[in-house]
Each structure stands twice: as C-alpha cells, then as structure tokens.
C-alpha cells in the first residue's frame, strides 16, 4: 500500500468530503491560497474558492462564534487553528455555546463543527505553541475529542468527524504530522470510541495518548529484550473513551500505566485510572501508575523542553517500576 503523511491523510478525507458536500467550509489564518501553515488545505482553494476556504483575520473568538452560528443554520464549518493554543481565546464560544446548543435546544439544533489544530511539545515552539488541552474539552459534555496517532487512523477519524453532528475537537500532534504510514486511497471511516491495540503483550498495559504512543512503542522494544511484553493501547478518541478495551487488556495483564504529555491533575490518566479502579479493581495486581509531562508551562530551550515531556527512558523505567510492584 502507498504511504502518506498524517496531514496528507486528513487532507484526503477533507477533499473527498468537500467534493461531496457543498455545505462544508474551512476558516483559519492562511488556509486559503497558502494552503495552511501545516498544509492542511493545500490545493483546495483552487477547487472551491474563497467562500469555502475563507482566510480569517486574527480573531479566534469571532470566527469560532461565527462558525457555531453557521453550524446551527445548515453548514458544516471547520475551524483550522494551526496551533490549538489559539483556541483558548474562543473558550467561551465553545464551552458556553457550541457544546450546549444541542442540549439547550432539546435536540432541535445540530452543531456539526470541527475544531482542528496542532498540539504538543516539540521543536522549541515554547509555551504559546505547545499546548494540548484535551483534558479541558473531555471534561465538558457536548464535545467529541479525537487524538489520532497514525495516518491511517487520522484519515478514518477525520472522515467520521466530517459527518458528525457534534462539535469535534480534532488534535494532531505536531511531532507526527509528517510521519508516513500506509493509507488506502479509497474512503473509509473509523468510528469514535474504539481504541486501537498498537502492540499486543501480556505483562503490562500502557495506555498512551498522541505522540506518547510512538515513544511507548520504542520503549517496548527495549523492554521486550528484557522479557517484558507490553500491550499498548491508543484510545484514538478521548470522548467517547473506549474504557472496555482498557479493561479487557488489564484483565489480561493485571498492570496499567497511562502515558500522557499533558498535565497530571484532573487529566485523562486520572480518568482512566479511576474507571479501571471502579470497574476492574479485581484484575489489578499493582497500583495504577501515571507518567505525565511536568506541571509547568512549556519552556523554549531544547534542554529545558526535553525535561518537561516524558521520554523513552522514562517510559522504560516506569514500566520496570510497575512490573516490580
């Protein structure tokens, strides 16, 4: 099968949907003729013009609120934030409005709104271009939260987002945007709420999110040399969260570590740990463990930046500690 990057994969899904559905439009800064800072819309402006590829002033609250109104009235907007840190200027429009409109209208209005952007630490982007923020959105009823980690998943999950009637937060980690993977040329969808087993194993379960999936798989190679076979679960969507796949794995391994570069308090690891303790306590042979990024803003200097995000060595040590517990 041919191999394409994660960004090319989401662009294929977008292009196919835009060809079929003329209510889809994209807004963002530089998503028009320029094709997006991360090539998210390359080539689409030439096909669909400025009405459907609308460059925006730096006005995040404005165009997010505008797109919420558009989603309520018959179109399917996509907000391309470039860096998802910029979404914070629009939090009121999202949490108080987009997430609540379907409920407050008792299901008579829909909110088919996609909010996409790059997340994650890396490349010395510093603290205003390195956030992930998915725990914030997972906490709010009304949002779907998607964090793809392979080109194949990205295409199928984005295709699902493009036909969803719910607001979808689609978060692409910047360190894997240009990783290549096998992707079919035909269209397909991957349902929300189905985790992927990224590596099978029987000694320990690791749930990893975003770029941590790749680092965990690297750690698994080293652990396997020592005879530790880790099962790696990529949840793919954090809301809905496929806790059943995690429980099934823990039933087999008896041990659980969650690896996530976002902050630990009230994070996705806390949620997964709580649900496993509630529903799978008898399967646990050791306390559930978490490995998170440091509880600090993201610094610029490479030596400082590397110190705030979990690395392969730390994942190896965390698994070894868990196995010894």
């Amino acid at each position: 099968m041919r191999e394409i990057t994660l960004i090319e994969a989401t662009r294929e899904a977008l292009a196919a949907a835009m060809a079929r559905d003329n209510t889809i439009f994209v807004v963002g800064e530089g998503i028009g003729p320029r094709g997006g800072n991360f090539n998210t819309t390359t080539g689409l402006y030439d096909l669909y013009g400025p009405e459907r590829l609308r460059d925006m002033p730096i006005s995040e609250r404005g165009f997010v609120g505008m797109c919420a109104g558009a989603a309520m009235t018959g179109s399917r907007p996509i907000v391309d934030f470039m860096f998802v840190d910029f979404i914070l200027d629009a939090m009121g429009e999202l949490i108080n409005q987009a997430a609540k409109i379907q409920y407050m209208s008792s299901g008579r209005l829909k909110m088919p709104l996609i909010l996409r952007g790059c997340i994650g630490i890396g490349h010395s982007a510093a603290t205003h271009h390195s956030g992930s923020y998915f725990p914030h959105f997972v906490n709010i009823p009304g949002f779907r939260v998607v964090v793809p980690t392979t080109p194949y998943d990205a295409k199928g999950l984005f295709a699902t987002a493009l036909v969803s009637d719910d607001p979808v937060i689609f978060l692409e980690h910047k360190s894997i945007l240009f990783h290549k993977g096998a992707v079919p040329e035909e269209e397909y969808t991957i349902p929300f709420g189905q985790a992927r087993v990224a590596r099978a194993g029987q000694h320990c379960t690791v749930v990893a999110v975003g770029a941590m999936v790749g680092k965990t798989l690297q750690a698994c190679e080293r652990l396997a040399l020592a005879g530790i076979e880790v099962e790696v679960i990529d949840p793919r969507t954090l809301n809905p969260l496929d806790i059943q796949s995690v429980l099934a794995s823990v039933h087999k391994t008896g041990r659980l570590l969650i690896v996530d570069e976002t902050f630990q308090p009230c994070g996705i690891g806390a949620e997964i740990a709580a649900q496993v303790v509630e529903q799978g306590f008898d399967d646990l042979d050791a306390p559930v463990c978490r490995l998170n990024g440091a509880y600090a803003p993201t610094p610029y200097s490479p030596t400082l930046e590397a110190a705030v995000v979990p690395n392969v060595e730390e994942i190896v040590r965390a698994v070894e500690t868990l196995m010894a517990a």
Binding site: T23, F25, G65, M66, G74, S75, G92, N96, Q97, M104
Partner: peptide
C-alpha cells in the same frame, strides 16, 4: 428563533455565522 443567551455577546457572532450559512447556501 435560534436561541437567546445568558452570556452577553455571542448572539452577535452566531447571527454572523447564520449570515455565512445563508450566503454559502
């Protein structure tokens, strides 16, 4: 009647979005 709001301001943006839909459609 697409909704009233307990927050001051969002109606301005949402009406703008409705205008976007109506133009696009």
């Amino acid at each position: 009647m697409m909704g009233t709001s307990g927050i001051v301001g969002p109606c301005i943006l949402q009406a703008t979005g409705a205008g976007y839909s109506f133009q696009l459609l």
